[in-house]
Nucleic acid binder design. Structure first.
Length: 880
DNA sequence: CCCTTACATCTTTTT
DNA sequence: GATGTAAGGG
């Protein structure tokens, strides 16, 4: 606790004094006001306006400041007007913050930046202008995951596919993945399309898209994918946007997916004369010199990317641009500036392609790369720990974060007996901080998975420690909000079948599955929306009198509301609808604990409508811009996942649950192999770099996962921390462990006695593999891998080298996790012949007996007698 | 048609 | 261990 009480930068990391030399200072003095206080690299990033620029901005290096200052610079230099700058972010929050900061920098006039927003909101905006060109109407509905799944469920039923075996959610995930990769139904690789429902996947995707058009709806993926299609099929439209956007800025570029990449690429192909170097393009010139031929080249260029991705069957190589030559030099990309940090790419599982940032220079020839490596956030020890950890990753551009700050306190690692003790220890430490005068707003607990949160909540409730959970279900994803929106959607567009179906029996009106089915049949036969079908059906005697009566009543209500819409303010209309439909009443009568909260949410929804001019405008934006951000700013500890912590910073950061299987997540390791491990490591890096002054890591020896207690092993990431920046402390819980002084090897010897799995053949074989590769050369497994990844040797030997690592020796060699990874790599690279053969009878601890149906290296597909078909590693089954 | 019981499932989640 | 979803009985 010898921390100096005031650090010069703390709390204002973006307003540090210029740290450059005399020359830099002189330039700064000469330049406009807003450039003051930028360091030389930041300033370079702001002032390099022409040509492609990639700003590699490490954690806490002033990324947002560079982006906003750059916009200010473009505007003040008269290089473009506000509506000629395209500036995309991923989150509404980031967009809001940029608007806010720009406003502060420029005085006002930010309203004139219509093209500052998220990928999806800008994509949606463009799409609405040209909706008819992609078979939509401009008031199309944006569906969320829920609607998507329900629609797909219907399609599955129509195709007579068992949605037990082929869940709609899975198909939704596949389609989402395809859209993320920029693939329209016809472009999906045949192998992948066949994966779902015995080859029907591709067709289902196609019919899904058709249904969306009939429903006048688009899902999130469509906002970009249909935009790309729009541009490709209508060069004149594309040209219009290409010449409008003089400058393009992209935030968090490491998180872009293929679709976003293609979209950016289309927009950034400047219509230019062949052979004119980019530097010669002066502002304004792009407008006048439009040469159609070149645009088509730009188009077909991107088209060929897509074609290519279709041809290559594998998901990995499907990334366009991975193998082909650089973009046509004669149509140079224009002024695009991407800011990102490959070390903070944590959304790979959602389709983000780290390769986009890794290949930037290749994709945009002549690109200038600027590294921001001066960290203005964390103390020396924290930064060193984070840097050393992330250095274990192989696939990165490489940055070295520096700080001029003091070393501060070492990063601490604390072991506890179980997760309960972990929560207790953290609770006590927070109370201690509180007593010492720290603000609770500067304390955060970052967990890997949300189920970890409960334990902390329980603890904090008993301690009376105020906390707030960040993340969780979004406001508009809550059932009551979606119900209310569904009513409004049916009023706005009677053809919105999904919305109609959602509320037709909410509250209960005696219109159950049978009735809905009847309406569906009727609607399908006459190719009309459900609502129209309902109108027709009530005139017949197909329904029982009771159902018929309530359906007629419902239709009359909607007719009345639609009429009222003309004469009533939209907020008032919403209140009337919620009231008259009996929806509010339904919750008022509900005696469950959260009913009151739901009613509050409904009020909040109506309140939020005030910001929009009318119902139409509200509905257009609601699904894109509604996010929580609960206002109440009382002093409280923040509790959130590592993912939602990105972009935030706190004085004190607690990082519990650093155990194998949980963090790194076993599932990620199983599914994504080495890439997954690296992403987990980036997540660890993100976690550490959130901390300004104190980062505290924890692991528990026992944790309850899925209801049963299991013994866990400290995360390998702990081993990867540099010992000189880490301090190992004893848990204050005091239970369980005798104080044998820290947790040395002896402790982990203890741990091992718990795990019976350590004597299994699989474990021993894995250990043998591990030892071989530890030895460096020679191991057959290792050799195979090195052949395919030539750069691996150097970085890895450094990484696993014994010097410096905090936990080298001792238990770190005895961990279970790495084996799986190594084993998988072995399987992939050497194609080791499995000791199993087809139709062998096998036994699995969890799934029971079965027989082998497919062998892929050491990965087996086994048809279990009871559990069905599963993929397992051969380590986990025994021949019978 | 609604309510009950059994059963499986169980990261992360910007839009 | 809790939660949500799907089939069965009233």
């Amino acid at each position: 606790m010898t921390e100096p009480s005031k650090l010069p930068h703390r709390g204002v990391p973006e307003h540090q004094p210029a740290a450059g030399g005399i020359a830099a200072r002189a330039r700064a003095a000469a330049g406009p006001q807003y450039l003051n206080g930028l360091n030389p690299e930041q300033r370079d990033a702001v002032e390099t306006l022409d040509g492609p620029v990639l700003v590699l901005a490490g954690a806490g290096t002033g990324k947002t400041r560079v982006l906003t200052t750059r916009i200010a610079h473009i505007l003040s230099q008269g290089r473009a007007r506000p509506h000629e700058i395209l500036s995309v972010t991923f989150t509404n929050k980031a967009a809001r913050e940029m608007k806010l900061r720009l406003g502060q920098m420029l005085g006002q006039a930010v309203e004139g930046m219509p093209w500052l927003g998220t990928f999806h909101s800008i994509g949606g905006r463009i799409l609405r202008f040209h909706a008819e060109l992609v078979q939509l109407k401009s008031n199309f509905t944006v569906l969320d995951v829920d609607d998507q799944v329900r629609l797909l469920k219907q399609l599955l039923q129509a195709e007579n596919i068992d949605d037990k075996r082929w869940p709609a959610r899975m198909l939704a995930g596949l389609i989402d993945g395809w859209k993320n990769r920029g693939l329209t139904p016809s472009q999906v690789p045949a192998g992948e399309a066949a994966m779902f429902a015995n080859g029907k996947g591709g067709k289902l995707y196609a019919t899904y898209q058709e249904r969306l058009k009939i429903l006048n709806a688009a899902d999130f993926g469509d906002l970009l994918l249909e935009n790309i299609r729009l541009f490709r099929e209508n060069p004149d439209v594309l040209r219009q946007y290409q010449s409008r956007f003089k400058f393009i800025l992209v935030d968090e570029y490491q998180d872009t997916n293929v679709a976003q990449y293609l979209w950016l690429r289309l927009l950034s192909q400047a219509p230019a004369r062949p052979g004119v170097p980019l530097s010669a393009i002066i502002p304004g010139a792009t407008e006048s010199s439009v040469i159609p031929g070149r645009i088509e080249d730009a188009n077909s260029d991107v088209q060929s990317h897509i074609e290519e991705s279709r041809d290559s069957g594998s998901a990995l190589s499907a990334h366009p641009g991975m193998t082909e030559a650089p973009a046509t030099p004669s149509s140079p990309p224009k002024n695009i500036c991407c800011v990102g940090d490959d070390d903070q790419s944590i959304y790979g599982w959602r389709g983000a392609e780290v390769d986009n940032i890794l290949r930037f220079e290749h994709d945009f020839p002549g690109a200038k790369v600027i590294r921001l490596e001066r960290n203005y956030r964390s103390t020396g020890h924290i930064l060193a720990a984070a840097s050393h950890l992330i250095a274990h990753n192989e696939g990165r551009l490489g940055k070295t974060l520096r700080t001029e700050d003091v070393d501060g306190e070492k990063v601490t690692v604390t072991g506890s007996w179980d997760s309960e003790e972990e929560a207790r220890a953290i609770g006590e430490e927070i109370e201690e901080l509180q007593r010492a005068g720290d603000n609770l707003n500067e304390v955060a607990i970052l967990v890997r998975a949300s189920f970890q949160m409960r334990e902390f909540e329980d603890r904090f409730v008993t301690l009376g420690l105020p906390y707030r959970v960040i993340g969780g279900p979004r406001f508009y994803e809550r059932a009551e909000i979606r119900d209310a929106l569904a009513y409004l959607r049916v009023i706005n567009s009677p053809a919105d079948d999904l919305a109609f179906e959602r509320i037709v029996n909410v509250p209960k009106r005696g219109l159950g599955d049978a009735t809905v089915q009847l309406l569906h049949d009727h609607a399908r036969k006459r190719r009309m929306p459900l609502f129209e079908a309902a109108r027709a059906v009530v005139e017949t005697d197909e329904l029982k009198p009771k159902a018929r009566g309530s359906l007629r009543e419902l239709i009359l209500q909607f007719d009345r509301w639609r009429a009222q819409r003309e004469v009533t303010a939209h907020t008032e209309l919403a209140e009337i609808v919620l009231d008259e439909s009996g929806y509010t009443e339904m919750w008022q009568k509900d005696r469950s604990a959260d009913a009151a909260g739901r009613l509050d949410n409904l009020k909040e929804l109506v309140r939020s409508m005030e910001e929009f001019e009318n119902l139409q405008g509200f509905l257009e934006h609601i699904s894109l811009v509604m996010d929580r951000d609960g206002g109440a700013e009382e002093e409280a500890v923040s509790l959130m996942t590592l993912h939602s912590a990105k972009g935030l910073e706190f004085d004190n950061v607690f990082l519990p649950g650093w155990e194998e299987g949980l963090f790194p997540s076993q599932r990620t390791l199983d599914e994504q192999g080495r890439a997954g491990l690296e992403e987990e490591r980036r997540l660890a890096h993100v976690g550490l770099t959130r901390a300004r002054r104190r980062a505290k890591l924890y692991f528990a020896t026992n944790r309850r996962i899925h209801g049963t207690w299991s013994t866990t092993i400290p995360s390998r990431f702990l081993d990867e921390l540099p010992s000189q920046n880490v301090e190992i402390t004893e848990s204050k819980g005091g239970s369980g462990w005798g104080g044998s002084g820290g947790y040395g090897p002896s402790r982990f010897d203890n741990v091992e006695s718990f795990g019976s799995s350590y004597s299994t053949p699989g474990w021993q074989r894995a250990q043998a593999n591990r030892n071989r590769s530890q030895g460096g050369r020679g191991g057959q497994a290792r050799g195979g891998f090195e052949e395919s990844q030539s750069s691996f040797t150097g970085s890895r030997s450094d990484a696993s080298g014994s010097r410096g690592d905090a936990f080298s020796g001792g238990f770190s060699r005895n961990k279970r996790g790495p084996m799986v990874i190594e084993g998988e790599l072995v399987a992939k690279s050497t194609g080791t012949v499995s000791e199993f053969s087809l139709s062998d009878r096998v036994f699995h601890e969890k799934f029971g007996y079965g027989h082998v149906v497919k062998i892929d290296g050491n990965k087996l597909t086994i048809a279990f007698d009871k559990a069905g078909e599963k993929k397992v590693l051969d380590n986990f089954v025994k021949r019978t």
